[in-house]
Design a protein around this nucleic acid. Structure first.
Length: 572
RNA sequence: GGGCCCGUGGGGUAGCUAGGACAUCCUAUUGGCCUUCGAAGCCGAAGACCCGGGUUCGAAUCCCGGCGGGCCCGCCA
């Protein structure tokens, strides 16, 4: 089963505590803390027990510490300030973890195979123009989570839901067909070309009621499956979509499947859902439209009703999304959505509708706050945006300047390649390192940070490890962990040993920023080790053991970066 | 009018679900380290839990009330 050495240690500590607590005849959940530096590796706080046992926490800790006999991976048990502190048997931990890393290589960190099939929907931006940085958090979060879940052992499919049904898609298709736009697109690509038609169509429709009528008419035809209209809209969407895929590819995001919203109108599943909802006791009718009264479902505000079918019998966005969710449920065990916080209410309505229909499944949702500009919110329709492509270009340019400063010895081609890996890495890291729900204001200098808490910092540690290994020549993998004796070696080995647990935690809680923090810690540990502990100049057994530690570091760093969607160069 | 999210050193950020030992890390400021494996690095200094109550032996963490910022309340998507 698991070769996760750190987890094994934690399990042994829990077992020992459980046994000791049974002896004291108390039942309490075992919550383990990380011990402060120099106090051991894992701590058990005894404060909650004080009342039950009517003794001071410190006395309880001392009693427990005296009762527990160190064995297995527990080297020492001590009591201090109301905590029982457990020290890990370092030799065993280091040996198991490093062997595991050297053996599993780019699979190091992987957990046991999970049975659950995960369907992860992310990005799903309207295909009416280029991706702007306000929404760029979505693919980065989604892709990173997918990579983490895969390493953890889940079977994951990522999916982009294409909005080819709504007003905005029609608006664009109408603009593409009927307007010739003056002015050059920013880039020679369909997303940049068509967004001009889209913006112009919006403008005309606002100014001229007859244009609005034409678009309304087209929308109605689309909803009723008029083949010509369907073809025009879908074609325009597909073209923009394939341009978006190009952009996503440059930031190492690949999406497995694309599902078109129109599919659920075509295959009548939306119709069936509408029929079913109409039968609910929560349903009301108003001028031919039907809505659910959702006040009793905790929805509040000016309006607590949710219209699910219009007076003309057509569906609305969330109703079609409901059909899509039913489809996703049928294809997966766990469905996860990455969504902007503006979708919260719609999702609440969707969840309520699921309950009303008697569906037990619910999607898991990760909401992210918008990236805004110092001057305000971004908008494709209004053309107030920083496009992701521009951010990428800027990242590449700035990274190139940095590479040129340091590595003038390399060929032009090689410098460009390193600049790409470093620049894209910096972009992704800076988005993914912070909790999705925190709003961020876009600033160039923050988005393109190459020092400190950044991708290049972690990549640099990886490159250093590779550099040592390439100079090492022959060495024996049969190392003796006992020779790893100083604190730099020990702390580094312990951090490496924690990697599988970190992956498990990130996957289980769907928390990707924790991995970014771990990568930063690991790189710091490695850099300290690198500074203070000579590897190539060490002798015999120490050299072998340190080389093993360096190689294990390389895999842990590289795999952490891979999960973050960041490439790990061997030189930079 | 109502709902949800966020508020931690000058700036950014972790910790908050399961309250506990001197609150994490980065940046900017400041003082050091390239004659030993790559200075995109390392070592040191200074600096923070929005405000007010409450619960508790103990609150950044839980509860109530404010204040500030964001998102939302469409027969749009």
């Amino acid at each position: 089963m698991t070769n996760d050495a750190f987890q094994k240690f934690k399990d042994e500590v829990s077992d020992a505590l459980r046994y000791a607590l049974d002896g004291l005849k108390v039942d309490t959940p075992i919550v383990l803390d990380k011990a402060p530096e120099g106090m051991g590796d894992i701590a058990f706080p005894c404060f909650p027990l004080a009342k039950k046992l009517r003794k001071s926490p410190d006395a309880i800790a001392k009693d427990l510490a005296a009762t527990i006999v160190p064995k297995g991976m527990i080297e020492k048990v001590s009591a201090s300030g109301g905590y029982v502190n457990f020290h890990v048997m370092f030799d065993v931990l280091a040996k198991v973890a490093i062997d595991e890393a050297l053996e599993k290589k780019d699979k190091f960190g992987s957990g046991g195979k999970k049975e659950a099939k995960v369907l992860l929907e992310h990005t799903s931006v309207n295909p009416t123009g280029p991706i702007h940085v306000g929404r760029a958090r979505n693919p980065m979060i989604g892709d990173t989570l997918a990579r983490i879940l895969r390493l953890a052992g889940y079977d994951v499919t990522t999916e982009f839901y294409v909005n080819d049904m709504g007003r905005q898609a029609v608006m664009m298709a109408w603009g593409v067909k009927n307007l010739s736009v003056e002015g050059k697109p920013e880039r020679e690509r369909d997303d940049y070309r068509f967004v001009l038609n889209y913006q112009e169509a919006n403008k005309r429709s606002e100014e001229d009621p007859s244009v609005k009528e034409l678009i309304d008419e087209m929308l109605l035809k689309l909803e009723h499956g008029d083949p010509l209209v369907v073809k025009d809209v879908r074609e325009a969407c597909r073209k923009v979509l394939s341009a978006l895929v190009e952009t996503l590819k440059t930031i190492n995001v690949k999406i497995d499947d694309f599902t078109f919203e129109s599919k659920f109108v075509e295959n009548k599943s939306v119709e069936r859902i509408i029929a079913k909802l109409k039968q609910s006791e929560h349903t009301r009718e108003s001028d031919g439209a039907y809505y659910l009264e959702l006040e009793s479902f905790g929805i509040s505000g000016r309006e607590t009703k949710w219209v699910f079918t219009r007076a003309d019998g057509t569906s609305v966005y969330t109703t079609r999304d409901l059909a899509y969710h039913m489809d996703k449920f049928a294809r997966s065990d766990v469905t996860i959505n990455i969504l902007g916080e503006d979708h919260k209410l719609a999702m609440q309505q969707l969840m309520a509708a699921l309950s009303i229909m008697g569906v037990a499944r619910k999607p898991e949702i990760i909401y992210y706050a918008f990236v805004s500009l110092p001057e305000g919110k971004m908008s494709t329709r209004k053309g107030i945006v920083v496009n992701l492509d521009d951010l990428i270009d800027e990242a590449l340019d700035r990274a190139y300047e940095e590479v040129k400063k340091r590595r003038a010895d390399l060929s032009e081609e090689r410098m460009r390649e390193i600049a790409r890996v470093v620049g894209i890495g910096a972009l992704r890291y800076n988005v993914v390192r912070i909790q999705p729900e925190k709003q961020i204001v876009f600033k160039w200098e923050d988005a393109l940070n190459f020092e400190g808490s950044s991708a290049p910092f972690v990549q640099y540690a990886h490159a250093r490890a590779c550099s040592i290994l390439s100079k090492a020549g022959e060495w024996s993998h049969e190392f003796d962990p006992k020779v790893l004796q100083n604190d730099y070696e020990k702390e580094l080995a312990k951090t490496i040993a924690a990697f599988p647990s970190v992956i498990e935690e990130c996957a289980g809680h769907r928390k990707i920023h924790v991995l970014a923090g771990y990568a930063q810690d690991l790189a710091t540990q490695f850099n300290q080790f690198y500074r203070f502990v000579p590897v190539l100049k060490a002798d015999g057994k120490a050299r072998d053991a340190r080389l093993a530690l360096v190689e294990a570091s390389k895999w842990a760093l590289g795999n952490a970066l891979y999960c973050l969607g960041i490439e790990a160069p061997s030189e930079m």
